[in-house]
Write a protein that binds this DNA or RNA. Structure first.
Lengths: 153, 153
DNA sequence: CGCTATGTATGTATAGTTGCAAGTGTTGCC
DNA sequence: GGCAACACTTGCAACTATACATACATAGCG
């Protein structure tokens, strides 16, 4: 009973540290795309090609808003429009190699930095961190991942 | 050696869960202020009254950009301008009660949700999560908190 | 074939961020 | 007192996000 820091406080603290990691990993991408744009790339990276309408719905944007946002994403070379094989009125959006690379770069940056942090721990500490975080992730998992989009993760 | 998930992967997973918590907690605030504006409020909440120039530097914004952004923050009633007692050319920005309440509300929301998640664990699990996250936070701590601002945390 | 529903794009409008350059007021030093 | 440096604001301009209403093209059904 020596800990003056409650579990919730420790979690908040750790969440700040993790957010630092995330923020740094994303910040390089934010030099070339905006946060709303990056959100779209992340979704595409996770789901594969997607219709305009579905994509707009995922980011909770108006169709017209999204259409013009996509103009800019396409103009930037991050994604492509193409007619769906199913229906000629549907427009499929696909990540370009450049777009995918941007997302991957952020993910790798994040993974690298987390690894660096964990390397400062002893193997047994590392193992207990792993187990604890797994526990936490499972306990938290009943929440949907949808809201992550607010921050473009 | 039964874990198929590396410590780094477990951390990434947990970070997603934590980010979900953060995203949800911030999203209510984003209905009344923008993310850049919320960043400013968070800084003020952590630092107390601050000069325009220093504040602008903290968010890496141009002075002119920031001056007008602050116009809107003040107009929204989230913060106040006042002349510094030190020098009449310096303008101090102070959070209003409303502004502080907005930031506090987000923090409390986050804390509440984390507590809820932790309550699903047994006391001993909770204790190990606490210890592990504390370890992680310390290991991560050599990084500055500055970059958190990218995401407005 | 024609009508309606569906999927996107455009017209129009507002609000916010951003930056460069120039202007206003204040301080401090010679 | 005058002049340079400093702190902030304003003029101007471009770009992004956002939304409502409307137009356009395609699909599907009777």
């Amino acid at each position: 009973m020596r800990g003056t820091v409650s579990a919730a406080d420790a979690t908040l603290l750790a969440s700040r540290a993790l957010l630092g990691v995330v923020a740094r990993s994303v910040s390089s991408a934010l030099e070339v795309v905006t946060l709303p744009q990056f959100r779209v790339l992340v979704i595409l990276s996770g789901s594969g090609p997607m219709r305009m309408g579905a994509l707009a719905e995922h980011v909770h944007a108006n169709q017209s808003t999204f259409s013009r946002s996509m103009d800019r994403i396409v103009a930037g070379g991050w994604a492509q429009r193409s007619t769906s094989p199913d229906s000629r009125r549907e427009v499929l959006i696909t990540l370009t190699d450049t777009g995918r690379a941007l997302v991957d770069e952020v993910t790798e940056h994040r993974h690298r930095e987390i690894s660096t942090i964990l390397e400062r721990l002893t193997p047994s500490e590392r193992e207990s961190v792993r187990a604890a975080l797994e526990l936490f992730a499972i306990a938290a998992d009943e929440y949907s991942v949808e809201e992550l989009l607010v921050l473009g993760i």
